[in-house]
Write a protein that binds this DNA or RNA. Sequence first.
DNA 1: TTGTAGGCGTTATCAG
DNA 2: CTGATAACGCCTACAA
Lengths: 349, 349
Amino acid sequence: MAKRSTVYDVAQAAGVSIATVSFTFRQPERVRAGTREAVLRAARELDYMPSASARGLARGRTGALGLFSYDLLLEEPADEPGGEEDFRTYPLYVDEVQRGFELECARRGQALLIGSDPRGEGEGVMDIVGRVDGLAVFPGARPAELLVPLARLLPVVAFATAADDGVLHHVRVDNRAGTRALVTHLARTHGIGDIGFVGETRMSDVAERFDGLRLAMADLGLRPPDGVLDPTPVGSAEPFPEVKRLHAGGALPRALVCASDQLALELMDVLDALGVAVPGDVAVTGFDGVVAGRLHRPTLTTVRQPMEAMGRLAVEILVAALEDPAAAPQRHRLPVRPLFRESCGCGRS
Amino acid sequence: MAKRSTVYDVAQAAGVSIATVSFTFRQPERVRAGTREAVLRAARELDYMPSASARGLARGRTGALGLFSYDLLLEEPADEPGGEEDFRTYPLYVDEVQRGFELECARRGQALLIGSDPRGEGEGVMDIVGRVDGLAVFPGARPAELLVPLARLLPVVAFATAADDGVLHHVRVDNRAGTRALVTHLARTHGIGDIGFVGETRMSDVAERFDGLRLAMADLGLRPPDGVLDPTPVGSAEPFPEVKRLHAGGALPRALVCASDQLALELMDVLDALGVAVPGDVAVTGFDGVVAGRLHRPTLTTVRQPMEAMGRLAVEILVAALEDPAAAPQRHRLPVRPLFRESCGCGRS
DNA sequence: TTGTAGGCGTTATCAG
DNA sequence: CTGATAACGCCTACAA
């Protein structure tokens, strides 16, 4: 690898000082034409590429924004023995939010740093924080409070996280309105009043979804469930024990509203194995609006989050915060949109 | 924003020199236990986050890998007036390769910088090159030769690009085998011998696909087309003029092999508008294996590229090149897999 | 308009 | 085992 040339090399080749070289790149007009030509030509001939490290150090800014996931899905590359690809694992919710973040960064010519914490030690954040001017973070197993100290150092946007702090910027969706729309549809259109909720409510998003379901049922004069069903994580060994028990006892609700699309798809697998027809015997709904819900048969009724918009918004917030560090933290709650497809009993969409 | 604390602050708080602080972080065992504790505690209390800029400058390495696209799809966020999402635009081929790159970086705890050149001035590369230790680049409108000077400065992996240089690392797929499999299937299974190729062959990948088609047809004793049909870019105003002309003259081939899935989907729109049935009147195939091909009706027969593996491989190559800068450039050609679905006349898959 | 010189936060090479 | 101290490459007053 050839040694990269520096301002010194360019300065020497152009017969000027390094200050002039540096100046030529940032304020080309304010340099005499002849000098400018000489500098630019020298730079081109020497393949001069400014060092972002040096520049960042001198300026006190890296010029990059960061996107961080605490626990990334790190599955080993699945073999594709011959069948179709498993699009249940991609693209997920986070992938689409990330895409919005990327598109907005690209539009603004912003460099984007993607980081994660594969070991789960929280040490990964430190690394990335040192590299960026602002950071957006997906919710993870670790409590969001860990982000608060970071927010004193740089602007931080938290996705889909409860907002009981006063320092983080927040980008969330209207989860309650989402499940409310689902419940209302199930009741009014399909005449279903016996609705259960599947999922675990430790994440604030899911808690809000469950809350929205209960509020909506109460408003409709229906009896809300006392609690959630099967608050076990996605992908557990013996999934949905409670649903199975209810089925065995013939006490399955007529509809199961799930905390996410992923969960709903897994649930439908289990129901299928039990010989329960969807939507005939029980209606199933998801939340997120990932593509897998359209590939599944029956197609999945769900609530679509504006993921691309969420990602873009995070970038906007960070850029604004960089320009005005004194501004108050922003809290956004974006609207969602129900998608009524086959799994609730509607016709194919 | 609070000023970030530095090694100096930590050193002072711990009552040691900055050298000891730095040393404590890199070789904890080689520092006396008491000193170590003091330093780590001070660092924690001060929320010390090392500056990647300073570190990179001192070490001569940024510790990040880069992924660059010359011309990113920068569509404005599409309104979603109420219908379903348009999954034709995401995830595309590049998105899935990028995902593989990300997963592999995450697995290795590597920081990943994503950059693009929205203005198309080539100036974006300079910015990102200064930030990374190694770079992978998607093919773009600009000739790959522009990458050669970069490769003298840092390891560069080119995706899906012709390899007539001696310096770039290459990650490609076996395009010829892909179209060969398609042609063989069309001929043997569906008895089709009249096959056209749609697409523009300026990109080496597409040229190879066309070449594979011609070779396969010749081997089968069929008469290969003299040239390609409609070498116009995706998304042009008046798409597929030649196909329309052939249809008007009643001379449409029995099968149209397209350069990509995107192109095939657009073509099917046009055929549909012309009243041409797929696969009844004409069989259509794509190339890539993106998810949109499964959502379309009829589902799209295509050739699947191992995109995740391609992304992962690029990371492996870069990491290896960083460890041994003297090693020769690597050239990989990964296998592809045909997926026979409805659009060629096969049953639903 | 251009040059000089100091500083940005770490690392690494030495002595001690 | 720890402490000075010189890079690292660029930016930016301040001078000339």
